[in-house]
Design a protein around this nucleic acid. Structure first.
Length: 700
DNA sequence: CTGGGCATCT
DNA sequence: AGATGCC
């Protein structure tokens, strides 16, 4: 049944070899010098944060210790676990279980991060192929180390260090000689764990197996501070022992839900489920990967992590609803970020702001982010000086992003703010940013592109294979191309991967690495300019740090000033003082909502007001706007004299920016006047930078 | 009363 | 930009 079809092609050698036995263990007679399977180590530090705190304060060693982030115990030491405390338990529950639980705040990750990289660096001193997974786990591909070590290891003298999964202690040694690579791997793992302990004082577990998936799964078999090796003949055992698909690394909440909807509740269900049906649900790439994972097959390489590709800092809270709070939080977050960035030495080229808005229904997942290039003159000061002014400039930039996410003058309720530096560029000692591109094309030969981080260059060390993987496991295939001539695997009676059907290999045409060719995407919406220099500094909004305010972009300043006006000044005075340019944008003009300073409604925020036909007379607004557009487009807090003295090109640049900032009102009005929807499209083309102010004032 | 980072894929 | 997943 199986191979009646003549799909042919496939490397026959591989095919036959695979049909003979387990993809993992080519029994004994392997004449090839290159290893047929890799040996991957997975290291997992015990209750990492708690260990770090116990190192910092040895008095905590013998007491029940919990690491607290906000209202959660993110991890705890084993004394606490003995008393029923678990990871991710609420502080309330933890205290209930263990009244004497000692809590240490763990929101600041600095110490954990530093120790984490010390561990990775230590592993790197033994082997170049180290991949981080979070702060407390590392994969190490020791295949090459083992090749060398095996060369000068006497035959038939192998043994295992630590546990061997599902093999009794005395039976394990009998298997060592037929699994020499894994046996050597177990010794290397023991040595590395010992190095971590003696040099850094940390304990942890290790898993030794033929791929990352299995190494990770088996590393937790005996905890804490122990290690376990998984033999190929026990792959079926460990996969079958999983509580369900969700327990497979790579299968998250969403995937598990979709699997459940297909009726798949056990790993075995997934193993036996027809690939065709799985493809229908997940698409070929994900389907093949899922099915492979369920079989214990994982051909993903250990990819050296190197230095992080981004640095971020965030804080969560129950409620944040004023611009003042937002700015102060940003200042705080960016200060620490800049400090970290300075130590890193590289220069970030992108700033990203992420917020989480409170929402009764969608409580946890509604994150929104905006990003923009970091102007060169700011970026440079980050690594060199890291001054207060740098932080303020970044706050200014971040506030621009913030105003693209939501309207500052409309009530908001944030529960999280995150700032992130990305597009980190190693700054070479010479060659200031320019001149680089040309040199690449000048002569065909490839000049060293910069100074790139050594880690990144180390990537090629990892066999980038798709086929021809030394893992030997791949050949079951079924090219998951569009045509999908799926060779359905015969439904197997056993759990063993070999019997269940060998690996399904996707002809992964990996998109290589989409290494962004850097330089500025044309989205110049966030371009920084010296706009702050022309702003007035008197009459600040209440409770806003003058220093911060001074550096803000004028548009943000305007909004803040207007907010103050609308909230505090109930004076019936001339409404036009509230900067129509900015006020218009903050309202749903299509509903005729405007800032209507009604004394009867004390501190109500504008958005809470009804469209109220009263003062929202379209005619008036239109007139007001015409006046502005024809005459003075300068923000109200810009001194026209000062502005007029600026170079023409800078004037134009500033004007462009200001127009981009608040174009919505004008255009929408214009469109409405003409009654054509096409106008909106035209607007989008003319002002692509405009934010998507899709938040209608709704709740009226 | 669900944290603070990271990465990859789309 | 967002979703998803890992710790």
């Amino acid at each position: 049944m199986e191979s009646s079809e003549d799909e042919a092609q496939e490397d026959e050698t591989e095919w036959e070899q695979d049909m003979k036995g387990s993809p993992f263990a080519v029994s004994g007679s392997n004449f090839l010098k290159t290893p047929t399977h890799k040996v991957i180590l997975h290291f997992d530090l015990d209750c990492f944060y708690a260990q770090v705190e116990m190192l910092r304060n040895p008095a905590l060693r013998d007491v029940p210790l919990g690491i607290q982030q906000k209202y959660i115990i993110v991890t705890c030491n084993y004394v606490a676990r003995q008393q029923g405390v678990t990871k991710l338990m609420s502080v309330t529950d933890a205290k209930e279980k263990c009244p004497r639980l000692v809590l240490v705040k763990g929101e600041d990750l600095t110490h954990y991060r530093e120790m984490s990289y010390q561990v990775t660096d230590l592993l790197l001193s033994f082997c170049p192929s180290v991949e981080r997974l979070g702060f407390d786990e590392n994969y190490v591909d020791v295949t090459e180390m083992i090749e060398k070590r095996r060369a000068h290891t006497p035959q038939s003298s192998f043994s295992f260090k630590g546990h061997v999964y599902n093999i009794a202690g005395d039976a394990a040694d009998a298997k060592a000689n037929s699994h020499a690579e894994l046996a050597l791997g177990s010794h290397i793992a023991a040595e590395l764990r010992e190095a971590i302990h003696s040099r850094l004082g940390l304990t942890g577990c290790a898993g030794i197996a033929a791929n990352k998936l299995l190494a990770k799964l088996v590393s937790g078999a005996f905890k804490p501070n122990q290690q376990t090796t998984l033999l190929p003949e026990n792959v079926g055992d460990i996969m079958g022992a999983l509580s369900g698909p969700r327990a497979i690394p790579g299968v998250g909440h969403q995937t598990a839900k979709r699997l459940h909807a297909l009726g798949l509740v056990s790993v075995r269900d997934l193993q036996l489920f027809p690939l065709t049906d799985l493809v229908r649900e997940f698409g070929a790439p994900s389907a093949t990967r899922l099915k492979n994972l369920s079989l214990g097959v994982d051909n993903s390489p250990v990819t050296p992590s190197g230095a992080p590709q981004s640095l971020s800092d965030e804080d969560s809270f129950k409620k944040m609803s004023t611009a003042k709070e937002v700015m102060e939080k940003m200042k705080q977050l960016l200060s620490s970020l800049v400090e970290r960035m300075r130590k890193d030495g590289r220069q970030p080229q992108t700033l990203r702001l992420t917020v989480r808005k409170y929402s009764a229904t969608n409580k946890w997942h509604s994150r929104e982010s905006r990003q923009c290039p970091i102007p060169h003159h700011i970026g440079r000061t980050i690594t060199s000086a890291g001054s207060d002014d740098t932080v303020l400039q970044l706050v200014s930039l971040a506030m621009k992003l913030f105003s693209k996410i939501l309207d500052i003058n409309t009530a908001f309720h944030l529960t999280l703010i995150n700032v992130c530096f990305s597009n980190l560029q190693a700054k070479g000692p010479s060659a200031g940013g320019r001149s680089s591109i040309k040199s690449f094309f000048a002569h065909g030969s490839s000049p060293k592109p910069f100074f790139s981080s050594p880690q990144r260059q180390a990537v090629p060390l990892v066999p980038r294979k798709d086929k021809s993987s030394p893992c030997g496991a791949e050949n079951g295939f079924i090219t998951s191309s569009v045509t999908t001539p799926e060779k359905t695997t015969k439904s197997p009676p056993s759990c063993d991967a070999a019997t269940l059907g060998a690996e399904i290999e996707q002809r992964a045409s990996v998109p290589a690495d989409a290494s962004q060719d850097v330089t500025s995407p044309s989205s110049t919406t966030c371009r920084h300019q010296g706009d702050a220099a022309f702003t007035v500094t008197h009459g600040l909004p209440p409770n806003v740090d003058a220093e911060v305010f001074r550096v803000l972009p004028v548009e943000i300043q305007n909004e803040l000033l207007m907010e103050r006006t609308s909230e505090q000044c109930h004076l019936p005075s001339n409404p036009t003082l509230t900067s129509p340019q900015t006020s218009g944008n903050t309202n749903n003009t299509e509903q005729g909502v405007v800032y209507d300073l009604d004394p009867s409604e004390g501190g109500a925020t504008p958005h809470q007001r009804q469209p109220a036909g009263k003062s929202a007379i379209p005619g008036e607004t239109t007139l007001e706007e015409k006046r502005l557009s024809s005459d003075c487009q300068l923000p109200l807090n810009v001194d026209p004299k000062v502005f007029s003295q600026l170079p023409a090109d800078l004037q134009a640049e500033l004007m462009t920016e200001w127009k981009q900032q608040k174009p919505l009102l004008k255009v929408k009005k214009a469109a409405r006047a003409k009654g054509k929807k096409e106008e909106k499209t035209k607007f989008c083309m003319l002002a692509p930078a405009s934010s998507s102010q899709h938040h209608m004032c709704a709740e009226g």
